[in-house]
């Protein structure tokens, strides 16, 4: 066997190992979600649902019929989408200023943003809990949207300003000579060209908001605003000593689906080389 073939085999083995490592838990939870509760509690049920008594779609039916769970899905979608839209809109404007303008304290703004993004989430939960109750936004959508935004804005600003810097400045100047106001140049030329960056920022923001557990569990107390990750942990079923593992698994799968759909949708928008042909050479 020559060296070239050896490298290829090595790559393949590594590839398979990584795939297994990443997908096994997912496969396991999907398999679990199709098992009956008895099969799960009766010792070792084996990997495939049929081996210990399958439940068909029953777990999914039960989960989706649960009023609290349905409400949690609604909360999660509403909160995550609002946080994403607001965060990306604000970050686009900020990043544009950061990339294009020279102003005092620019470095300070960027560094502060980075520091905020690196703040440990847990350290803020206590103070926020207290403040939110004083302000009366404890256990509300807005009470979660605000912390999600403050944690995702820095990331979005840094990502987007990198994208804006890639766009030749002449684009904008050409638009201005063509008769555009600064705002028109921004909206008709710069934003379309920065679209991949906008969608990247949107995905990152949505992920953070959707996956968050710490804020979700500590800043809510009822189903009024409780998001899915927190709601899943409240899923105890009829018998608190016997956690309904298969129901939880079904819930987890349902919670994953919107994220996968969103990524597949946005991924097509993230294409490289949008600025190809703009300038000579």
């Amino acid at each position: 066997m020559n060296k070239n073939a050896l490298t290829r085999v090595g790559t393949l083995v590594g590839f398979v190992l990584i795939l297994l490592w990443c997908l096994l838990p997912v496969a396991w939870i999907i398999s679990l979600s199709f098992k009956s509760q008895e099969a799960v509690t009766n010792g070792s049920p084996g990997f495939f649902p049929q081996s210990g008594g399958g439940a068909g779609w029953q777990n999914y039916v039960d989960v989706l019929q649960d009023e609290q769970f349905r409400r949690a899905i609604l909360n999660s979608i509403g909160i995550s989408l609002t946080a994403t839209i607001l965060s990306v809109a604000l970050a686009t404007l900020t990043a544009y200023a950061v990339a294009r303008l020279e102003f005092q304290g620019k470095k300070f703004v960027l560094t502060t943003a980075l520091v905020i993004a690196m703040f440990p989430v847990v350290s803020l939960v206590g103070p926020l809990f207290d403040m939110w109750r004083t302000f009366g936004i404890y256990d509300t959508w807005i009470g979660l949207i605000i912390p999600y935004m403050s944690f995702t804005l820095p990331l979005a600003i840094w990502t987007l300003s990198a994208f804006f810097r890639e766009i030749p400045w002449e684009m904008e100047q050409a638009a201005q000579v063509d008769g555009a106001t600064s705002w028109q140049a921004f909206r008709k030329v710069i934003v379309p060209l920065a679209a991949p960056g906008v969608f990247t920022a949107a995905i990152l923001t949505f992920f953070f908001a959707w996956n968050d557990f710490v804020f979700g569990i500590s800043l809510t107390s009822t189903e009024r605003a409780r998001p899915i990750p927190a709601a899943l942990s409240f899923f105890v079923g009829a018998d608190p000593f016997n956690r309904p593992a298969s129901l939880l698994a079904a819930g987890a799968v349902v919670a994953t689906v919107p994220v996968i759909l969103l990524v597949l949708f946005f991924q097509r928008k993230i294409v490289a080389g949008l600025t190809a042909g703009a300038v000579k050479g």
Binding site: E170, M171, A174, V189, L193, L274, V279
Partner: peptide, 9 residues
Amino acid sequence: FQNYALYPH
């Protein structure tokens, strides 16, 4: 412009 600055989109 020297480098044309066309709108690529």
